[in-house]
Design a protein around this nucleic acid. Structure first.
Length: 693
RNA sequence: GCCACCGUAGCUCAGUGGUAGAGCACACCCUUGGUAAGGGUGAGGUCACGGGUUCAAGUCCCGUCGGUGGCUCCA
């Protein structure tokens, strides 16, 4: 006699074992029709799930009206969508073997092993979708069939799919004592697939779906294992929500920094220069320079010492740091000294030999620096240090080069040459906590000033079961506590991840998402016990004995390239005035006002604003449209009326008309304050509207 | 690096093996217009690059380079 408790606290008692479907029917026919699945004692289950004892139950239904779809409902729909797509694929490609098809954040995928020589291309999507359409239209029930583990495995062995056998074995190893299949329709008659479920009650409940893309993947995520075809799809309860999702994706693409960057002329990647190497055009350079100036003032406040170091250094430096040859795969090959090169040519040295001898250290060469720390360490070590000198904070916008795999490169977000807003803090063990706090404060100032409020903070801790870490455990514990405590000061969301620490120390990373939903690490703060050891760093303590300093690596922006790439998307190109490459554009109504317009232009220039004068012979509307597309924060429209009164008509970005006319000097003062204070809304404040755009 | 797709004017894109196209941007002319596209004319191309098939290739095939998405990596 199970008694079930509903989310509102009410209870219902049943005579014997029951199912969510029966519970829904008991409540009402509407709910019975709308139900997709249920959570029973927190576990997501199908409507046919047997409930034999008292439990808490929440029925899951599709969305009503314009409400967003419940996450559980979407999960069920997409999981079922993956099955429907798999069935369709096997109809189109009968020899395709299925591997694994889970729901994911934006939809689902199915990994498929295609027979030798066959591929799925985007041209096939239409055929697959047509088959899916037929399966959905038939509205066949998802029917679950359970088998004992032994019977299930022998069935799979008969069918001969090594992938499904593997899935089953893994499930059994994880503790499953039976295996289940889901049929889209009648078992024995219709298509089925090994699956733990649950699913929506019938195929018709997957109301809107689309095959999105095809990509390669590896079995078990192992690059050395079988190559699979991964087909991505998405599904929604209805076509309307699918259409809304697709439209949202289109919108997101318009925010892509590669699209906006080209449109606004912020940066270029040039084939002739090389993959993953950013050319900062004048407009993009302004944004970067403003950011560097911004953080520069904060660094001064926090007593950092700026330094400059070269782009290349001897291989021995990076042998000592451990970067070479350990990370050789992600470095540009070393540069060999010209004299040494001549000798090698005389010796008829082969490439393989050269590579070996560089690795062994027989010949020296130079490396494009993959990190700045070894250089900063040599600066620290260049003079004797007393505990009274600590902490030493060396800061540099240091450009580093890493030979990232070509398939990984993307716009400004993943590149081969980038400039870190890097600094290394050399301090005592006791100072670590305060120094980390100082670093986080920097990150906070940056994020707050730029209005970045959606980010993840990940505290990377060591994996308690691994032995790869350097430094002693008590020191690690203290550093990890310091990282946690510092993250705590950020208040909201941070999470610790075991095993995410670097081998040399724990770290705090700041992670954001780009326009199309991918995660990227921006700022980072890392404690390092390894490099001081490798370089044998020391300072003289109060006890007149040498001690090992601790190093902290930190880059609040991460890299200028990635940060600006992200920022372009964050602002969708509409930068606040202090960052905008062009802050103000003066638009004379007609040539009659061009003298006054020049006067306005010169006044703003003299006040240090980045201003242009558009004297084109287009109509005012056309010039406004162009300026609006260039996302210029302020347009000053000046005509005879303004010339007469000595005013400017201010049109702020994003407004339909000008805010009104103000005396020229009032505007100059307001925008100067707005840009100097790196804030928003001062100009608008002139018009009694202090809301930022 | 791997798999799939893509590469035509500065940009966005049409183009069925048979003479290279459009819109925007650009230049010039007309227009002097008070808040998101006034009109006209013109210039602009080794169809990514290199081979091949064919009477004929932007179009078909192979290779290279580059881009996109994903996988794998990411000190």
């Amino acid at each position: 006699m199970p008694t079930l408790t509903l989310p509102d606290g009410s209870t219902r008692t049943f005579d014997g074992p029951t199912t969510p479907a029966a519970v829904a029917a008991d409540i009402g026919p509407g709910l019975a029709k709308a139900a997709l699945g249920a959570r029973v004692d927190g576990e997501l289950v199908g409507l046919d799930h047997a409930i034999a004892k008292d439990a808490e139950i929440a029925l899951i239904t599709g969305p009503r009206g314009k409400n967003p779809c419940d996450a559980d409902a979407l999960w069920l729909i997409r999981h079922s969508g993956a099955h429907i797509m798999a069935e369709a694929v096997q109809k189109v490609f009968p020899d395709a073997m299925l591997v694994y098809g889970p729901p994911v954040e934006e939809g689902f995928y199915y990994d498929i092993a295609m027979p030798e020589g066959q591929t799925i291309s985007s041209d096939d999507f239409e055929k697959i979708e047509a088959e899916m359409e037929a399966i959905v239209a038939a509205d066949r029930p998802f029917t679950r069939c359970d088998m004992s583990a032994d019977d299930g495995v022998s069935r799979l062995e008969q069918e001969g799919s090594k992938y499904k056998i593997d899935n089953a074995r893994r499930a059994i190893e994880a503790g499953a004592d039976s295996l289940s299949w889901y049929t889209t329709g009648t078992p024995g008659e219709h298509w089925d697939d090994l699956c733990r479920g649950p699913h929506v009650p019938s195929t018709g409940r997957v109301g809107g779906f689309k095959v999105m893309s095809v990509a390669a993947s590896h079995w078990h995520g192992d690059a050395d294992s079988d190559r699979l075809t991964r087909l991505y799809g998405t599904a929604f309860p209805d076509r309307k929500r699918l259409a809304a999702h697709l439209e949202q994706l289109e919108e997101a693409k318009k925010r892509d920094h590669r699209v906006i960057g080209r449109k606004l002329g912020l940066f270029r990647i040039d084939d002739m220069v090389g993959q993953g190497l950013i050319l900062w055009t004048p407009k993009g350079a302004i944004i970067r320079q403003e950011l560097q100036d911004f953080i520069g003032t904060e660094l001064k406040r926090q007593n950092y010492d700026p330094v400059f170091t070269p782009h290349i250094g001897k291989l021995d430096l990076f042998r000592t740091s451990g970067h070479f040859p350990y990370y050789q795969d992600s470095q540009y090959p070393p540069l060999v000294d010209p004299d040494a090169m001549s000798r090698l040519v005389d010796e008829e040295c082969s490439c393989a030999d050269l590579s070996n001898r560089l690795r062994e250290g027989d010949i020296d060469g130079y490396l494009l620096k993959p990190m700045n720390c070894p250089m900063h360490i040599r600066i620290f070590d260049g003079e004797p240090r007393s505990y009274r000198d600590l902490p030493v904070r060396l800061a540099e916008f240091g450009t580093v080069y890493r030979y990232e795999q070509s398939g990984e490169l993307g716009g400004m977000l993943r590149v081969r040459g980038f400039t870190q807003d890097d600094a290394h803090i050399f301090c005592t063990e006791e100072q670590v906590q305060d120094e980390i706090a100082g670093c986080l404060e920097l990150v906070q100032i940056i994020f707050k000033t730029l209005g970045i409020d959606s980010f993840d903070v990940r505290v990377g801790l060591r994996d308690p079961n691994a032995t790869k870490y350097v430094g002693n455990p008590e020191v690690w514990d203290r550093a990890e506590d310091a990282c946690r405590a510092a993250a705590e000061t950020l208040g909201d969301a941070w999470h610790a991840e075991e095993g995410e620490a670097a081998f040399y120390g724990p770290k705090i990373d700041f992670i954001v998402r780009d326009a199309i939903g991918r995660s990227w690490q921006l700022g980072t703060v890392q404690v390092d016990y390894n490099l001081p050891e490798r370089f044998d760093l020391s300072y003289i303590g109060a006890d007149n004995a040498p001690h090992r300093p601790v190093m902290i690596h930190r880059a609040p922006f991460g890299s200028m390239e990635r940060f600006v790439g992200f920022l372009i998307e964050h602002f969708a190109g509409a930068f606040p005035a202090w960052l905008a490459p062009e802050q103000v554009r003066v638009l004379p109504v007609s040539e009659k006002s061009s003298d006054y317009a020049s006067n306005v232009y010169r006044t703003l220039r003299a006040a240090g604003q980045r201003v242009t004068l558009d004297e084109g012979n287009e109509r005012l509307q056309a010039r406004i449209r162009v300026a609006a597309e260039e996302k210029i924060p302020y347009l000053l429209i000046v005509g005879p009326r303004d010339a007469e009164a000595g005013t400017v008509s201010v049109r702020a970005r994003g407004t339909e008309r000008d805010l009104g006319a103000v005396p020229l000097q009032a505007f100059v003062d307001a925008i100067s304050t707005e840009t100097e204070d790196r804030c928003d809304g001062v100009v608008r404040g002139l018009f009694g509207d202090s809301d930022p755009a």
